[in-house]
């Protein structure tokens, strides 16, 4: 595939898709969305440019070493376990705090959200890894 329109569009659409993915991640706790879906969307957005230029060998910052996304994601997941241990509750219990923010009634942050961000990055890494393993030539 070598289309000028797709290549030009990929540059800008990619960031639109990624921001949409982040939106899906943020609304995910009680609404449709969440880390997995957001991660898939973001992963495909990152891959998108590779498809447009028909080249995954392109030395690009976002595409290099998908393992680091997985490392980051798994690390965040691990972090999300720690508060429950220190709170003396069973492992993986959700701990919530409310951060006072002006003009809002306060934003609730909790370990499930951290877990979701972790899933988000892990899924990005996995998606990239999948696509690479299926497109790479010898």
């Amino acid at each position: 595939m070598n289309s000028v329109i797709l290549q030009l569009a990929a540059k800008y659409l990619r960031w639109l898709l990624i921001s949409f993915a982040v939106l899906a991640l943020l609304r995910g706790h009680n609404n449709p969305g969440g880390g997995f879906i957001g991660g898939l969307m973001a992963g495909l957005a990152i891959v998108y440019k590779g498809f447009a230029f028909n080249a995954f060998q392109v030395k690009e910052k976002l595409l290099k070493r998908p393992e680091r996304y997985m490392g980051l994601g798994l690390f965040l997941i691990l972090l999300s376990f720690i508060p429950s241990v220190f709170a003396g509750k069973p492992l993986m219990t959700g701990i919530w705090i409310t951060v006072p923010v002006p003009f809002f009634s306060g934003i609730k942050l909790g370990t499930p959200f951290l877990f979701d961000i972790g899933v988000f990055f892990t899924v990005i890494g996995v998606t990239l890894l999948f696509v690479f393993s299926l497109t790479q030539k010898k």
Partner: peptide, 20 residues
């Protein structure tokens, strides 16, 4: 479904390498 996705991708990659 997620697990199935991972496994299908792996089998396809394996098949591809085997064919190569």
């Amino acid at each position: 479904i997620v697990i199935g996705l991972g496994i299908v991708v792996f089998t396809l990659a394996l098949k591809y390498k085997f064919f190569e």
